[in-house]
């Protein structure tokens, strides 16, 4: 399996934190394509912070993050986020004024995807995440939580990224829906050769992924 993402000796502390008060310290982890990962830890252990670092939403850190052997700090992070990595949030983060289909197409537009019929592609993705095409024209606020999360996943897949990062993707969902969502992630990794990283504190999720990284929070110092 090809190593797609590598975190080398990464440390992070908040701007307003004391000098030695690191949320993450000397983190060394790597991710491969075709596998599912879970980053586990208690609240405040730095799970979401790590997610924001590897998704390019946070730039100020010590150490090195390599995407496909390229230093993330030297990359265009907007381009990275709209082409190479798909992010799925616990609260879905869809645009409420847009329909399900439009949310997916917007993501394709932002990534400047060409040579594709975007509408057809959006419907195909909806189908892939288990949504009926009839929901395409519906405003996202009129969809259920599970349906919104599927739309969020479809959106993250719309520009065919190599990595899917999901932050507590099943946190707001019932067990049945959670299983269905996890099944989707599993398929994405094992069928579509994506690297799926799930940030979670759910043991159920951890049980279903290929590898778990546990962030233990001890005296504000995280060791792996």
């Amino acid at each position: 399996m090809k190593e797609i993402l590598k975190v080398n000796n990464v440390s992070y502390r908040y701007n307003d934190a004391p000098k030695d008060d690191f949320v993450l310290k000397n983190i060394n982890i790597s991710f491969e394509q075709g596998k599912t990962y879970a980053i586990k830890g208690k609240s405040g252990s730095g799970k979401t912070t790590l997610l924001s670092l590897i998704s390019g939403l946070e730039k100020k850190y010590c150490g090195q993050i390599l995407y496909d052997n390229k230093d993330l700090s030297k990359m265009n992070l907007d381009k990275y986020r709209n082409s190479d990595i798909g992010i799925v949030f616990q609260s879905y983060n869809l645009l409420p004024q847009f329909t399900a289909e439009e949310n997916i197409i917007l993501s394709m537009d932002i990534s400047n995807l060409k040579g594709v019929n975007k509408k057809e592609q959006a419907l195909k993705l909806m189908e892939q995440v288990g949504l009926d095409k009839s929901l395409a024209k519906r405003r996202v606020l009129k969809l259920s939580g599970g349906e919104q999360q599927r739309i969020a996943i479809a959106r993250s897949l719309s520009y065919n990224p190599k990595i899917i990062i999901a932050d507590e993707p099943t946190g707001n969902l019932d067990n049945e829906t959670e299983s269905e969502i996890l099944k989707i992630f599993d398929n994405l990794a094992h069928k579509d050769n994506k690297c799926v990283i799930i940030v979670t504190h759910s043991q159920n999720v951890c049980d279903k992924v290929d590898k778990v990284y546990d962030l233990k929070c001890v005296n504000n110092k995280t060791d792996l």
Binding site: L57, D78, K79, Y80, R81, N82, S83, I87, F89, N93, L94, L95, L106, S107, I110, S111, R155
Partner: peptide
């Protein structure tokens, strides 16, 4: 919120 979402999915500040 809209700004946050669009920036997260990689929309440039200028656009």
């Amino acid at each position: 919120y809209e700004i946050g979402v669009l920036r997260t999915v990689g929309m440039k500040k200028s656009k």
